[in-house]
Lab assay of single mutants.
Amino acid sequence: DRHTIHIGDITIHLEGFSEEELKLAEELIKRGIHLEEVKRILEELYR
């Protein structure tokens, strides 16, 4: 499954994450956390 996060003019595609995980990812990215770090956090929390 493919999910999309929109932040301003930026569109990020993250596959294989639930709606809850994507909301967390979006919040972290909006707070300035680097995408690679966001992915690592999600994997630690949900895998």
Rank of each mutant, 00 (worst) to 15 (best):
L24A: 04
I33Y: 15
R47E: 07
A25R: 02
I41K: 02
V38G: 00
L28M: 11
T11A: 07
E20V: 08
D1M: 01
K30S: 09
I7K: 04
E19M: 15
I33K: 07
K30E: 03
V38Q: 00
E26W: 15
S18L: 10
A25N: 00
Y46T: 03
L28T: 01
G32Q: 02
D1G: 06
L22W: 13
I5A: 02
L14S: 03
H13P: 03
R2Y: 13
D9T: 10
E36S: 11
L24K: 05
H13G: 05
L42Q: 00
I10F: 14
E15W: 15
D1L: 03
V38I: 09
E36G: 06
I5E: 05
E21Y: 15
E15R: 09
H6K: 12
R40S: 03
L24G: 01
G16R: 10
H34I: 05
R2K: 14
H3V: 14
I29D: 00
I10C: 07
I29K: 01
L24W: 08
G16A: 08
L42I: 14
E26G: 08
E36I: 09
L22V: 10
E43T: 06
R2F: 13
D9V: 09
T11Q: 10
T4Q: 12
E21I: 14
S18K: 08
E20L: 10
A25S: 02
E21S: 09
T4K: 03
I33H: 05
T11G: 06
E19I: 14
L22G: 05
D9G: 11
T11W: 08
S18Q: 07
E20Y: 14
T11R: 07
I10Y: 11
L22A: 09
I7D: 07
D9N: 12
S18E: 06
I10A: 03
H6Q: 14
I12A: 06
I33G: 01
G16Y: 09
Y46A: 09
S18R: 09
R47F: 09
R47V: 07
D1V: 04
L45E: 02
H13Q: 11
A25V: 12
K39E: 03
E19Y: 14
D9I: 09
E26H: 10
L45R: 01
L45A: 05
H34V: 11
L28W: 14
L35C: 01
I12R: 02
D1A: 03
E15F: 15
R40W: 09
E37W: 15
I33W: 15
F17P: 02
E19W: 14
H13S: 12
H13N: 06
L22T: 06
E26V: 15
E19D: 13
E43R: 06
E21Q: 08
R2H: 10
I7N: 05
I33S: 03
L28A: 01
I5F: 01
E37V: 13
I33A: 04
H6W: 04
I7W: 10
D1S: 04
L42R: 00
G8S: 07
E37T: 11
E43N: 07
T11Y: 10
L14M: 08
E43V: 08
L14I: 08
E27K: 11
E21N: 06
L22S: 05
I29C: 04
E20N: 07
S18M: 06
E43Y: 15
Y46W: 13
L14Y: 04
E27V: 14
K39W: 15
S18P: 05
I29S: 02
Y46R: 15
K30T: 10
I12P: 02
H13A: 08
H13L: 09
R47K: 13
E15P: 12
H3E: 07
L14C: 12
K30G: 08
A25I: 13
A25M: 09
H3R: 02
E43H: 12
R40F: 02
L22Y: 12
H34S: 14
K39A: 08
L28G: 00
E37C: 02
L42W: 01
E27H: 11
I29Y: 12
I29N: 01
E37H: 05
I7F: 09
K30F: 15
R40I: 04
E27W: 15
I33D: 02
H3A: 07
R40V: 03
I5W: 00
H3F: 12
L35Y: 08
E37S: 04
G8V: 07
I33C: 07
T4I: 08
S18D: 07
S18H: 08
L14A: 04
I29E: 00
E36H: 07
D1Q: 04
L24P: 00
L24C: 04
E43M: 15
E21R: 06
E21H: 13
E44I: 12
H34M: 09
Y46G: 03
F17D: 03
L42S: 00
I41C: 03
I29A: 02
L22M: 09
R31N: 06
S18C: 10
I5V: 05
L14T: 03
E15G: 10
Y46D: 03
E19R: 13
R47W: 07
I41M: 11
A25L: 09
I7H: 08
L24D: 01
R40E: 02
L28R: 00
L45S: 01
L35T: 04
G32W: 15
I5Q: 03
S18I: 05
E43L: 15
R40L: 06
H3W: 13
F17L: 07
R31E: 03
H6V: 14
K30P: 00
S18A: 09
F17N: 04
I29M: 07
R47C: 04
L14K: 01
H3N: 10
K30Q: 09
E36W: 15
K39V: 13
R2E: 11
H3L: 13
I29Q: 01
L28H: 01
K23A: 07
T4R: 02
I7G: 05
K39I: 14
K39H: 04
E26D: 08
D9K: 03
F17Y: 13
D1T: 06
L35D: 03
E20F: 13
A25Y: 04
H34E: 09
K23W: 11
R31T: 06
A25E: 01
E43C: 15
E37I: 13
K23Q: 11
F17K: 02
G32I: 15
L42N: 00
S18V: 05
L45Q: 01
E36R: 08
H6T: 13
Y46L: 14
G32R: 01
R40M: 06
E26T: 14
E44T: 04
F17T: 04
G8N: 09
I33R: 04
I12M: 09
I12V: 10
T11L: 06
I12S: 05
V38P: 00
G16S: 05
R31M: 08
I10E: 06
R31F: 14
D1E: 05
D9R: 03
K30L: 13
H6G: 07
I33V: 10
E19F: 14
L42V: 09
E43Q: 11
F17C: 05
E19T: 12
L24S: 03
H13V: 10
I41D: 00
S18F: 06
T11E: 09
L28V: 01
I5K: 01
G8D: 08
L45I: 12
I7Y: 09
I7E: 06
L22E: 04
E37K: 07
L24N: 02
E20P: 06
E27N: 10
G8E: 05
L14Q: 01
K39P: 01
L42T: 00
E27P: 02
E26S: 13
K23Y: 06
L42M: 07
E19Q: 14
L14V: 06
R40T: 02
D9S: 12
I7P: 04
H6Y: 05
L42K: 00
E21W: 15
T4S: 08
E20S: 09
G16M: 08
F17E: 02
E26A: 14
H3G: 10
H3I: 12
T4E: 12
I10V: 13
I41Y: 05
I41Q: 03
L45N: 01
R40H: 04
L14F: 12
K23I: 06
L35P: 12
K39D: 01
Y46N: 06
G8Q: 05
K39Y: 15
V38E: 00
K23D: 04
R47L: 14
L45C: 04
T11M: 09
I12W: 08
L24V: 14
E43G: 03
K39T: 05
G16N: 08
E44H: 03
R47A: 13
I7M: 10
K23H: 11
G16W: 12
H3S: 06
K30C: 04
G8W: 11
L28I: 02
E37Y: 15
T11P: 04
R31H: 03
K39G: 02
K23S: 07
E15N: 12
L42Y: 00
E36Y: 15
H34N: 11
R47G: 14
E36V: 07
L35M: 10
L45T: 04
K23V: 08
E44L: 13
H3P: 09
L28S: 00
S18T: 13
D1R: 05
K30A: 12
I12L: 11
R47T: 08
E37F: 15
V38R: 00
G32F: 15
D9M: 11
E21L: 14
G8M: 05
I33N: 02
R2L: 11
K23R: 13
A25H: 01
I7L: 10
K30M: 12
E19L: 15
E21A: 15
H6R: 08
R40Q: 06
L22N: 05
G8A: 08
I12K: 05
E19N: 10
R40D: 01
K30W: 15
G8L: 08
I12Q: 05
R31A: 06
E44C: 15
E20Q: 12
E27L: 15
L22R: 08
L42H: 00
E36K: 05
E44G: 01
Y46E: 03
E26N: 09
H13K: 10
T4M: 03
E20I: 08
R2T: 13
H3T: 10
K30H: 09
E37A: 08
F17H: 04
K23T: 08
I41P: 00
I7R: 04
I41L: 08
L42P: 00
K39C: 10
I10P: 03
E15T: 13
D1H: 10
G32T: 04
